Computed example of a mutant assay.
Amino acid sequence: MDKNERAIELMKEQKYEEAAELFNDIIEENPKDPLGYINFGNLLLHINDAERARRFYERAIELDKHAATAYYGLGNLYYEKSEFQKAQQNLLKVIEIGLEEAHAYYLLGMTFFHQEQFKLALPYLMRATDLSPEDTEFTFQYGLALAQSEHIDEAKPVFQKVLELDSNHSDAHYNLGVVALYEENLSEALDHFNHALAVQPEHALAANAKKQIMEVWDNTDM
């Protein structure tokens, strides 16, 4: 096990000071190698020292303009700070360089999603689900972006896939309930809202939707 591998293992063991010392040694021994700076940046970002992490990633890029993981680190950093346009710039660079990383596509899609540019989010979220089809969050957010883009028919099987991955995903049940309302199937909608509330009793949107269905039925019975 080389020093980089050992330092990464120390990070996983939450021995951050020891990992930092090793990364520092690596940089001193190989000051022109971007990998040491990238790994040290990852450590700093992990312990919420975003400003120092940014400097390490930028130094890595100075040494290698094609250091995809440095751009990925910056993209992740800016995403966590909700600086979505800066995150986009760096994540697009990751993809341009050719790093096929599901989480990079996911983050890029979500930068557009958070700016309510749902159609622009779609290809990146779809690619994230292609690369990591068992990831529940990637799949759910892709379905949500489809729904927000008014592709309701395409969103439905995606939410159903979420339930295949996690039958207790309350938000997937809620959104399938909304789809059922769109299809004018009140019984199916109510079933999904009840499932959402069984999993998450404080799910306000599901509770409100259920209340509205019950009011419609009460008025129909009158």
Rank of each mutant, 00 (worst) to 15 (best):
F113T: 02
F113G: 01
F113M: 04
Q115K: 14
Q115H: 10
E116W: 07
Q117P: 08
F118W: 09
L120W: 11
L120E: 14
A121T: 02
A121Q: 00
A121R: 00
P123C: 11
Y124R: 08
Y124K: 09
L125Y: 03
M126N: 09
M126E: 09
M126S: 11
A128I: 03
A128T: 01
A128M: 07
D130S: 13
D130H: 14
D130V: 15
L131H: 06
L131S: 04
L131C: 07
E134V: 09
E134M: 12
E134Y: 11
D135W: 05
T136W: 00
T136Y: 03
E137V: 06
E137R: 08
F138L: 11
T139A: 01
F140L: 04
Q141Y: 01
Q141D: 05
Y142M: 02
G143C: 05
G143P: 03
L144Y: 01
A145L: 02
A145G: 06
A145P: 01
L146I: 13
L146H: 02
L146R: 01
A147H: 04
A147C: 10
Q148G: 04
S149T: 06
S149Y: 05
S149R: 06
E150W: 13
E150R: 14
H151T: 10
H151C: 12
I152Q: 07
A155N: 01
A155K: 00
K156G: 05
P157T: 04
P157E: 07
P157G: 07
P157M: 07
Q160A: 13
Q160K: 10
Q160H: 09
K161M: 10
K161F: 08
V162N: 04
V162A: 03
V162T: 08
V162H: 03
L163N: 04
L163A: 10
E164W: 04
L165S: 08
L165C: 12
D166F: 07
D166Q: 07
S167Q: 13
S167F: 12
N168L: 13
H169D: 08
S170V: 04
D171L: 11
A172D: 03
A172P: 02
A172E: 03
H173Q: 13
H173M: 08
H173V: 03
Y174L: 02
Y174V: 00
Y174K: 03
N175F: 00
N175S: 08
N175H: 09
L176M: 11
G177M: 05
V178G: 02
V179W: 00
A180F: 06
A180V: 04
Y182K: 15
E183A: 14
E183V: 14
N185E: 11
N185P: 09
N185T: 12
S187M: 11
S187T: 13
D191I: 13
D191S: 14
H192P: 01
H192S: 07
H192M: 08
N194H: 12
N194C: 11
H195Q: 15
L197M: 12
L197K: 10
L197W: 07
P201A: 15
P201L: 14
P201H: 14
P201G: 06
E202T: 12
H203S: 07
A204S: 13
A204M: 12
L205V: 04
L205P: 03
L205K: 10
L205G: 10
L205Q: 11
L205R: 12
